[in-house]
Simulated scan of single mutants.
Amino acid sequence: MLQRIQTLYLLLASVVSGVLCIYLPYGMDQNGIELYALGENFLLSMFMGSAVLSLIAIFLFKNRKLQFVLGRINIILNFILLGVFVYWSLTVSGETKISEKGIGMLIPIISIVLLVMANKAIKKDENLVKSVDRLR
């Protein structure tokens, strides 16, 4: 049942985490050079991990509980990524790494919103199946 709405949300979260992180800069250094996730192995692995978790969750449509758990793990991963961005942007003492914030710092927030909406839809499906099972 890949035609459900949570599949669309998970696919969008995967595209946002996996593709947009490559093309949108997350900041600028003191020389005005844009910083991308491709230059940082940690950031790239976190973004790709989030994208892979979303793709795996799409194909677990028969096991909604595991799909829901993977969505929560993915949300936690994006919160950690958001925390790293906030830490880097707040410790800009002496223009060490990031001089200006970029639009790429919003990618985890967009991904979290999409994952929360997917988890709500998964929970709604699970409740619907439970209610139908009660009627039998």
Rank of each mutant, 00 (worst) to 15 (best):
Q3F: 15
N41L: 15
M46W: 09
S93N: 04
D125I: 12
L53N: 05
I98T: 08
G18L: 00
N31V: 13
T91V: 13
M1H: 07
V52A: 06
F61Y: 14
L43Q: 09
K124F: 11
M46G: 00
L44E: 14
I56D: 02
L24E: 12
V69M: 14
I22E: 13
V84G: 00
V19S: 13
Y36Q: 02
T96G: 09
I56G: 01
I75L: 08
V19R: 12
K130Q: 07
D133Q: 11
F68W: 10
I107C: 07
L10Y: 12
E34P: 14
L55V: 15
V132E: 12
S17A: 02
A13G: 01
L70V: 03
I98L: 15
F47Q: 06
L90D: 13
Y9H: 06
I76G: 03
N41I: 15
L77V: 05
I122S: 04
S45W: 07
M117S: 05
A37M: 02
L90G: 11
S99E: 12
Q6E: 14
T91M: 09
I109S: 09
I109N: 06
P25A: 03
A121T: 08
K124D: 13
A118T: 03
N31H: 15
V113H: 07
R4K: 05
N127W: 07
G27W: 12
L8H: 01
G71Y: 06
L114G: 04
L135M: 02
L55E: 14
K65D: 10
V92N: 13
V129E: 13
L55K: 08
L128H: 11
V84P: 02
K123V: 12
Q67M: 00
L128I: 11
I33S: 14
V16E: 06
V15G: 11
L66A: 00
L2C: 04
R72K: 12
L66C: 00
G27I: 09
V15M: 05
K120G: 10
P25N: 07
Q67W: 01
